[in-house]
Every structure is written in structure tokens, then in C-alpha cells.
Design a protein around this nucleic acid. Structure first.
Length: 110
DNA sequence: TAGGTGACGGACC
DNA sequence: CGGTCCGCCACCT
């Protein structure tokens, strides 16, 4: 059985270490779907909450939480979960991406 | 079927 | 720093 796109996204997001951050585009690239960052966003949108998955560690390439009314509060929840991991989130949803970027994936993948 | 939309990204100004 | 534009691709009218 070939894992679905969503399953591959979830499997990769599950590998993000506590206290570290990844971007949508980074996840897409790691599962062999370069340029499909939007699809990663769709996959996370389909994720039922609450979830065991560390989905909150995924932010956009601009280094901030994607704030959207359509998320009905899940963006606010994301900020809360990140702060609980010791990651600073300012009023505009910005996070220290460069300093906490997840960089171990390339060596973990085969 | 066609066109608008979005939890994106990069180039540009 | 912030704002705009365009390419991208799956979803939803």
C-alpha cells in the first residue's frame, strides 16, 4: 500500500523534535513533493484536533504562524502550544524560525 | 467544466 | 521592515 500524501505529511511532521520548527515548504520537500507547500497546508487543515501530532511546529517560510479567520482559532492554539515548548510568539504570530529551524531531517531520510 | 480560493513561497519594490 | 504580484496545486462552488 502506497501511503497517501496526507499520511506522508503526518509521518514527516511527527519527526519534528520538541522545541524546533519546520516550514510547509520544508515538509513538502522532505516527502518528495517540492513546490507543494500549499498541499501540506491542506493536509494539516484536514487534521482533526486535538491531535497527538506536533502540527503546531509547522509555520510558513516567513517565520510566522499563518493567521486566518478560516482556522477558527486553531492559529491561536498553535501559538499557545509553541509557547508551552519555550518558543516565543509575538502578537503578530512571529516565531524565531532561523534560530529553531529543524535541520536533522536530511540525514534521517533515506 | 471553469473559475475563485487558500494553514505557501519567492521575487520585487 | 511592509506590501504586491505571480506561480503553484488541490478544493469547492
Amino acid at each position: 500500500m502506497e501511503p497517501s500524501f496526507d499520511q506522508r505529511v503526518y509521518a514527516m511532521v511527527a519527526r519534528i523534535p520538541m522545541g524546533q520548527l519546520a516550514t510547509y515548504g520544508q515538509i513538502a520537500e522532505l516527502i518528495g513533493a517540492w513546490g507543494c507547500a500549499r498541499q501540506v497546508g491542506w493536509a494539516l487543515r484536514r487534521l482533526p484536533l486535538p491531535s497527538e501530532l506536533p502540527w503546531h511546529r509547522v509555520v510558513n517560510a516567513r517565520g510566522c504562524i499563518s493567521l486566518s479567520l478560516a482556522r477558527e482559532g486553531s492559529d491561536w492554539i498553535q501559538a499557545d502550544l509553541l509557547r508551552r515548548e519555550g518558543i516565543a510568539v509575538d502578537a503578530q504570530g512571529r516565531v524565531p524560525l532561523a534560530a529553531r529551524r529543524w535541520r536533522g531531517a536530511a540525514t534521517e531520510i533515506e
